[in-house]
């Protein structure tokens, strides 16, 4: 059956064909409920996947091209070592620029931890040097060796040990989201198959009568397929609307809140939940069609 045929079967249908199967109030509501719930969950899984994807990218981008040099030295040697380190960095291939952070910047970095009133001047705080890399990057091991020789108080932190696990965690989280979406789709198919099988079994007499008077299998199957497809579509549409509403109600991303508050959609991502109801309908169409063909083929 071509796509166009399938669509016209489902949406235009045949009012008479729809009537040959008796209406079933209770199971109809259950199918609607299942489709709705699954769509709701799918929206969340989608939001999780997209948000963790964005997070992984952001962390990667922010941390990838920069590293930090920390110089701890007795007060008298601090300036000299800083100078030496900057000079050394300037001559290192792969380093785009190196800049010693000012006192104000260092205080701003510490403020979240110690409060704004901290007298930084009186504390033996190490000097930080921000290094921006070129696209090719520098040889971290080589730089460490040279620093050891020339600036004994310097410790190089190229952020790799922060970035890698975080990126990996975000990547896993995104994969988990997609796996959840797949599982939700498969579960929807399974539940609709069960519901369709139950409906086909409950209507065995109807099917027997229809066969007796010369109805083709495709006609009988259509009556069931159309029903379940429309139920899945309506249920999933409702669930999607509720799911998107719930995502909207989540607090917006804030710098202090970390990744948890970033859960949601951004930009074109808002269009993705629109795919959930049609996908649910396609799943229901395929599942009911397969169930109906299987059941009918077993009949005499």
């Amino acid at each position: 059956m071509t796509l166009l045929n399938a669509l016209s079967t489902v949406f235009i249908g045949d009012a008479q064909a729809d009537r040959v199967v008796p209406p079933t109030g209770f199971t109809a509501r259950l199918t609607l409920f299942v489709a709705g719930t699954m769509a709701f969950l799918a929206v969340f899984a989608l939001a999780l996947s997209l948000a963790s994807g964005r997070l992984a990218k952001r962390w990667g981008d922010e941390l990838a091209q920069s590293s930090t040099l920390r110089i701890s030295a007795p007060a008298g040697q601090m300036d000299a070592q800083t100078e030496a380190a900057l000079a050394l960095l300037q001559g290192t291939p792969g380093v785009a620029s190196a800049r010693a952070l000012s006192n104000e910047e260092q205080r701003a970095l510490l403020a979240p931890w110690f409060g704004p009133d901290l007298p930084v001047d009186t504390l033996p705080i190490p000097q930080l040097i921000e290094i921006l890399e070129t696209d090719d990057g520098y040889d971290a091991a080589g730089l460490r060796l040279r620093l050891q020789a020339e600036v004994p108080g310097a410790v190089l932190d190229d952020h790799t040990r922060w970035r890698k696990p975080l990126e990996r965690a975000a990547g896993r989280l995104r994969m988990l989201g997609w796996v959840a979406i797949l599982l939700i789709g498969a579960t929807t198919a399974a539940m609709i198959t069960l519901a369709a099988n139950a409906a086909l079994a409950a209507n065995a007499q109807v099917i027997a009568v229809l066969r007796l008077i010369g109805a083709r299998d495709s006609y009988i199957a259509r009556a069931f397929v159309r029903r379940f497809t429309l139920r899945a579509l309506i249920g999933a549409a409702t669930g999607t609307v509720l799911g998107v509403g719930a995502v909207l109600l989540l607090p917006a991303a804030q710098p202090e809140g970390g990744f948890l508050t970033g859960l949601g959609f951004a930009g074109g991502g808002w269009l993705l939940p629109l795919l959930v109801p049609p996908l649910a309908a396609i799943v229901a169409y395929a599942a009911t069609g397969a169930a109906a063909r299987r059941t009918l083929a077993e009949l005499a």
Binding site: L212, G214, R216, D217
Partner: peptide, 13 residues
């Protein structure tokens, strides 16, 4: 099965 359906249309039972 479709052939049977077509034959049933020509036989009233």
């Amino acid at each position: 099965r479709d052939g049977h359906a077509m034959a049933r249309r020509r036989i009233g039972v």
